[in-house]
Amino acid sequence: MSFLSIEGATKRFGGLTAVDNVSFTLEQGEIVGLLGPNGSGKTTLINLLSGALPLSAGRIALQGVTLSGRRADTVARAGVARTFQLVRILPSLTLMENVMIPAVFGAKAHWGTAAVAVANDALARVGLAGRETGLAGDLTYIDQKRLELARALAAEPSLLLLDEWLAGLNPTELKQGIALIRSLTDSGLTILMVEHIMEAVRTLCPRALVMNSGALIADGPTAEVLADPHVVAAYLGQVDADA
């Protein structure tokens, strides 16, 4: 039994099929890149995995437990955490409260000092230690991204979905960000990351998936996948495979 299995996942919006019969599996502790041109269905797939959208067809299971058909909050409690493509923090809450939320409402339902400890730990891991009393609305963009990751970590998830978490960072921040994500995998966390920054994908992900027009067109070791003529064609348009 695979850690995460996706069988024939399909999402239709009216006449548009945003995710078309996608199947793959992830093993525990893997870190996998999810690539593809804009509009290829990556974020929709993340939304299906996290329960933000219901599937039109197919099945998603985490450690044998069916996730498809469940509400986002029960998916979250089953161990799936995510960040958002457009960063979503809770501006009127403090950093501590922001990060505490999934610890409080997640599978382990921490409260009081236990929740604070989990949140402090998560804040420390992303480099925001000591700032827990500030308001999230006052943070800079990079710190908001850090906060969002800390919030995902405080859920103590088994599967982490990152939707372009590295986008918009400057070169120094990018290096820090890559190191941060690498440090997460050491603890056995499974990560599926949508990413456009190839440098990050090459460094972090031994394996990559590529989507185009809703379908999964490649799945394999990152270097091979990126050299695949179909993938190149998907990114560059109608380039002949032999050219």
């Binding site: 909050d73 029960t74 979250a76 809770l90 501006p91 409402f105 919030r151 859920a155």
Partner: peptide, 23 residues
Amino acid sequence: RLGLALRVIGDDETVAAHSGIHL
């Protein structure tokens, strides 16, 4: 817990749901 959940819902329902809150 209920009060914290209310405040999260007031700020962002999507985040609330993805944090495990039964809206």
